[in-house]
Nucleic acid binder design. Structure first.
Lengths: 132, 132
DNA sequence: CCTTGACCTTCCATTTGCTGGAACCCCTAT
DNA sequence: ATAGGGGTTCCAGCAAATGGAAGGTCAAGG
């Protein structure tokens, strides 16, 4: 299977697949003409990567998860630990974004949004808050 | 005022301040010895940038906001438009993260997390979903 | 006067995860 | 033979800093 087909099957752009090979996440074979030859297992791994990246796992996380994925004797606890760590990061990020969202929407509500120059958004940004 | 003091007052690392000068967000004066000399207005801008970045505005957004901040005759509508656009992006990001959070926490709940190899997390990642 | 240490300077490399483009090879169909 | 649609490599660059090397400056203390 050529890279184009692998791309269709995994949902990853060809460029990204080449990049993943570059950084050693996959190791497709090569045809006589130099074209990459993807086996089923390669496509499977690519789909795995696509999923894991979509869930926000970092490349390094993916590398670890792939290793566990391939290790028949891994314990599910190892995987769960990685996933939980990542879930924690996601939750932190959500909380941060929610803070931003709240502050920003208050500011937007307070701003007339007309032709006049007075703007609570800029006023507020101009006045540095006290940091704890 | 030297960069160290400007850093303390604005809450930005010195490295970041130099970087902001590099990309033209601020233009501090220079002392005879080559040290950057920050005026009150520079520190003020830095604090502004610090705030805006903390709210997740991109550097380019910051550049625009700064220009508006300095323009006495801007209309608040211009600022509001940028802020609203950004708020939309934040909300999208929150929604995305929430999807991840939900999927991931379901998977984590389903995973025994013991010494056995069977792991719903890896199983699920291995099976590519149908994309719409 | 000299040294020590805290500052400051510039410049270059690295990070993360790709993405774009140039220049070139390969295969099939017309 | 040539046009197209694959494929290949390598090099550059994006955001937004951060880290480190190599060196200049300044004030204080011995």
């Amino acid at each position: 299977m050529n890279i184009g087909e692998a791309s269709t099957h995994s949902g990853l752009p060809a460029k990204t697949i080449r990049y993943y090979e570059d950084i050693g996440l996959i190791k497709p074979l090569r045809d006589a003409n130099g074209y990459r030859a993807f086996r089923q297992q390669d496509v499977h791994k690519l789909a795995f990567l696509s999923q894991a990246r979509a869930l926000g796992f970092s490349i390094e996380d993916c590398r670890n998860l792939l290793a566990l994925y391939e290790d028949q004797s891994r314990s599910s606890a190892d995987v769960k630990a990685i996933a939980r760590e990542h879930l924690g990061q996601i939750e932190t990020k959500i909380a941060d974004l929610r803070d931003m969202q709240e502050t920003l929407s208050h500011l937007i509500d307070a701003c007339a949004g007309d032709h006049r120059p007075d703007c609570p958004i800029l006023n507020s940004l101009g006045k540095p808050r006290i940091k704890p």
